[in-house]
């Protein structure tokens, strides 16, 4: 026990300066960490997964034809509830247009807000607080529905994101696309996992 105490004292003595230096560095690191965290809180942000999903959604606008009879000034992408996709979509809306039309991001706080409202694309997050059938029943004709939950394409969502081998893929339900009055290019359907 004495030997243990002696070794411990020796360690404390010999390592005192190193320990103090480590504490100083630790404190600096902690401050830096807090600043970076503060920065993230201040700015908000998105993960790479949702960045990619947002870019996919933008790409869908290039491969899907909307009914020309629906005359709208802007191209509207709706998001149901809160999702990390908000940030990237807003960025894309600022940077890109769709067929010369301004892209507008519209947030729906609840399913009821969908009634009587039109958007070209509706993104349904996996955390959406409603049954997908209820959501689909409220969506206007002419809307391309996009979700991210297993089995949703089977349930009638037009496009559903899935992750396979750490890569983003999408399922497509051609029947849901055509019943919405939309036309998807064969190029897009070739890349999709077709769900009947």
């Amino acid at each position: 026990m004495k030997e243990y105490k002696r070794k411990y004292d020796q360690f404390l003595y010999m390592g005192q300066e190193r320990w103090l230096a480590a504490r100083r560095w630790g404190r600096t690191l902690l401050i830096c960490l807090c600043l970076c965290v503060f920065g993230s809180f201040r700015q908000g942000g998105d993960s790479s997964e949702y960045k990619l999903k947002a870019v996919f959604i933008y790409n869908f606008t290039l491969f899907v034809e909307w009914d020309q009879s629906v005359k709208t000034e802007d191209f509207t992408i709706g998001v149901l509830g809160n999702s990390p996709i908000d940030g990237p979509l807003e960025e894309i809306a600022r940077a890109k247009t769709c067929g010369g039309r301004k892209i507008v991001i519209h947030h729906y706080n609840s399913v009821d807000e969908l009634t009587g409202s039109f958007c070209h694309i509706l993104f349904i997050p996996r955390t959406a607080n409603a049954n997908v059938n209820t959501i689909l029943s409220k969506v206007s004709k002419g809307t391309l529905t996009v979700s991210e939950k297993a089995g949703n394409a089977d349930r009638g969502v037009a496009i559903n994101f899935v992750i396979i081998d750490n890569k983003l893929r999408f399922e497509s339900n051609p029947r849901a696309i055509s019943s919405a009055g939309l036309k998807a290019s064969s190029q897009l359907l070739k890349l999709a996992i077709i769900v009947d």
Binding site: L52, V55, F56, I163, K167, L168, L188
Partner: peptide, 12 residues
């Protein structure tokens, strides 16, 4: 292009 996007591994 979209086919290249499909090759990207989800980072993080």
């Amino acid at each position: 292009p979209i086919d290249k996007l499909m090759e990207i591994k989800i980072y993080s």
